[in-house]
Amino acid sequence: MGEVKVGQRSVVLSPSPHLARRLHAQRVARYTMLLATTVSIIVTLGIVASLFPTAVRTIITIGSQIIGISWAPLFEPPEYGILPLFTGTIFIVVIAMLVAVPVGLGAAIFLSDYATFNLRRVVKPILEILAGIPTVVLGLFGLYVINPLYVEKYWPIGEPLAYSGLGAGLVTGILIVPIIASVADDALSAVPRAMREAAYALGATRREVAARVVFNAGLSGVVAALILAFARAFGETTIALMVAGSFPKFTANPGDPMMSLSAFIGFAGIGDAEVGSSAYNTIFLIGAILFLVTLIFNVVGNRIISKYREVYE
């Protein structure tokens, strides 16, 4: 409705007749979107609110007993030494990383610097299928193939049983190979072409370009890939429960059965734990520990990723 002078003439610009309705639609849409956006915050608050009150209450009741080597909160009298769960978790995660880091990084370097465009187009979706194998199927594979056919037969120390931390670590390794491969490949592929070309022009071989120049340039992204994979292995429940068993043994032998932090939640949470019971309290305590540790690793990992994005984009 504003009057605008165009040369000598004055033109009246009137808004389209539906503008009010269109703006109203936009307002409604905006509020709906804002509402949807708050859902993710509510979920996070819900997690914190569900875990921490019970966890804090539990840790206060347990007190210094928590530093002990016997974990049996479901027995009478209960024992709350959490160290066996930590050693179990560390064994599984470290073994998984030992398997997955070389294989995953090898796959990432292959995809970013060695594979042809077409080969890449075939290999990436297959890796995605590997990433999509349900953990229960991997657990089955550990239970029926890795444990009986390999760990029980060839592990030299002690007398391996049907369950082993070693088997769980190996299978968790399979789980995180595609995570390392795809995040690290993204980082290496983001390294500018000019860097590769400069190195080739100086007479570097393909390996020198890939392993020295590109790898160093993309190192922060590679580190982020390892951190995210670590966090994933740390929180994995089903594989640990199926393959390492549900006996929290404080042991230095990876061929023994053991229990990880997350496996305990799965184990003790199955039987409809009553509110306020020892099982109920301890699964929330362990859940809070899992949440905090993975949160720290994820924050660091994602931070590194957004840093290298800034550098190259």
Binding site: L51, L228, T237, I265, G269, G287, F291, T294, L295
Partner: peptide, 11 residues
């Protein structure tokens, strides 16, 4: 996205 799945069971 990085919270372990089992924690969602707890909430």
């Amino acid at each position: 996205a990085g919270v372990p799945a089992v924690v969602f069971g707890l909430i």
